[in-house]
Design a protein around this nucleic acid. Structure first.
Length: 283
DNA sequence: AAATACGCCAACCGCGTGCGC
DNA sequence: AGCGCACGCGGTTGGCGTATT
């Protein structure tokens, strides 16, 4: 018994959009906005399309200021750095690249950038090296050296339960934990006793001293200084940090994530710079 | 020239989550 | 508190164009 379909599939058009449909959708949204309801929009706009399809078409193709075409080297760096830090959170990565859509970035990563990256480094591969994807000495460019006994391995499923992210209105990305050791989290995800919950926050605007300065704060990867402002991508560009983030780490992530071996560690890592550094590996 | 393989990208699918009732 | 609806996201698929055999 599956979920109820979002629309009557028999009565909606599927497949590529025609210019006429594009025009209808654009015209309707320009006049009326989305009205906050994509489900009813196609009917109002005179389109025989599923609301989800309309939303996707608008977001990925029709909305103003969308950029298509070649990605620059700078964009490559930003994508690599963010992927190394947060994994395949395409919407978050896209938010750092104005005009790019998550779908675009995802496609670009899967079809080109991943391969490009794999070709950048000599093949150091041994398939068993991924049990722990980062060797100790490789972490130095990634932030403070982290002793291996402070590396915590958790299942990726538990990662989602342990660190649930939420983008707040002020652009701060908050990771909320249940406050228990990951390895002790109950398997049903019910460990969220908030008494000792931690909050790890990432400020995407970096000029909020308050956000950056408290003991509860943290962020992914390389430390960013408080006196700089801008988006993550600005920071990454300032830091020229494809190198700082470690090509080797990224490459290993790529090979680990594409290996399909469930026993392998997939990715990554999180530490905060005001408390004991902690690296979380999920697999 | 035809057949096959490969690459790319738009679109689809289903799940998790937020929100209103 | 529980339920259902709608949205947003990430993974996957389908189809088209190009390259190779």
């Amino acid at each position: 018994m599956g979920r109820a379909p979002c629309c009557d599939k028999a009565n909606v058009k599927r497949g590529p959009w025609s210019p006429e449909e594009d025009d209808k959708l654009k015209e309707y949204i320009h006049k009326n906005g989305t009205g906050g309801n994509w489900i009813s929009l196609p009917q109002k706009a005179g389109l025989k399309r599923c609301g989800k399809s309309c939303r996707l078409r608008w977001l990925n193709y029709l909305r103003p200021n969308i950029r298509h075409g070649e990605f620059s080297d700078d964009e490559d760096k930003i994508i690599c750095s963010l992927y190394a830090n947060i994994g395949s959170r395409w919407s978050i990565i896209a938010a750092q690249l104005p005009g790019r859509t998550d779908n675009d970035i995802k496609n670009y990563w899967n079809t080109k950038l991943k391969k490009k990256l794999m070709g950048l480094l000599p093949n150091s591969s041994s398939h068993h090296q991924r049990k722990l994807p980062f060797h100790h000495h490789q972490l130095t460019n990634y932030g403070p050296m982290i002793p291996s006994d402070q590396i915590t391995m958790i299942p990726s499923s538990a990662m989602q339960q342990h660190y649930q992210h939420q983008v707040k209105e002020d652009g701060v990305l908050v990771f909320r934990t249940g406050g228990t050791e990951p390895s002790c989290s109950s398997s049903d995800g019910s460990s969220n006793n908030n008494n000792n919950a931690e909050q790890l926050q990432i400020s995407s605007s970096f000029h909020d001293q308050q956000q950056q300065g408290t003991a509860a704060d943290g962020h992914y990867g390389t430390s960013f200084s408080n006196d700089q402002s801008g988006t993550w991508s600005d920071q990454i560009m300032r830091n020229n940090s494809l190198e700082e983030y470690g090509l080797e780490e990224i490459r290993q992530l790529v090979s680990a994530s594409s290996s399909g071996n469930n026993n392998d560690t997939n990715s990554l890592l999180l530490f905060d710079d005001n408390r004991t550094e902690e690296r979380l590996m999920f697999y």
